[in-house]
Amino acid sequence: MALPKALSRSPWRSIDRWLPQIVVSPLFAVSLFFVYGFIAWTVYISFTRSGVMPNYTLDGVGQYVRLWATPRWQVALRNLVTFSVLFIGLCLVIGILLAVLLDQRIRIEGAIRTIYLYPMALSFIVTGTVWKWILNPGLGLERVMHRAGFESFTFDWLVNADFAIYTVVIAGVWQSSGYAMALFLAGLRSVDDEVLKAAAIDGAGPLRTYFGIVLPMMRPVFMSTVIILAHLAIKSFDLVMALTGGGPGYATDMPATFMYAYAFQRSELGVAAASAVMMLVTIIAIIVPYLYSELREGRR
């Protein structure tokens, strides 16, 4: 939006004219340095022989070879896949179910929505702390079941290397499924009322209306929700740290905790950088097509 010619004569005006660029440039510079510069640095380090200290001599893909040969990284990746699939799947199912149910002329909808969504306001550390206590082998759920008469009930997932990752899923779903619900409910509410009236006149019952008409219209919301949840899953760090600390052993490590451990505890900068780059690549593969379509839509 250029200023009208008549207004732009005085020197003041010409500065005014460049002000938008001047205002944005520090942000742009910050973004260039702290995002793109840092990414470049990390990528660079991942191709060097850096150990405890950065080493700026290029060394090919050695760190990546080491990374992929590390059993702990493979566990982290397997965990990421298990966690993401279950976490996203369960959040979607619960989110859609609750959104559809809440859309049924519930008088106390506001109160129920508040309850479903409050975990989202908590820190993952708090969530992890609570679930760590609930799932406590011995004093937690197990004892509740014992007292209820199920003497043989055992629940030791938290300390069982084969099952510990599922406790992360349980806590993660508890925290984020309300969020999925909110996104879907907002999507449902954006459906034109007249479409629903038309369906009522056409004679469609509630099930038919939702499955035949409304939910197919939710495709964009569905996509965004999956992206957001996937993003949460890949970045998940706090929850694992609070709930299992990556343990037992490194049974519940995820790429994020792996990277942290290698960067700050084991001081293997090269491997840490390589794992961070792998995370970045994964996110880019998911986010960029999504952002591209979003921006294109926004311009239309």
Binding site: F38, K235, M259, A263, L280
Partner: peptide, 20 residues
């Protein structure tokens, strides 16, 4: 510029931990 800045909202922060 906006697209470049926006990207920063989605990066996994692990990738900037070391240089930061």
């Amino acid at each position: 510029i906006f697209a470049l800045i926006l990207f920063g909202a989605f990066i996994p922060f692990q990738v900037i931990l070391l240089p930061m």
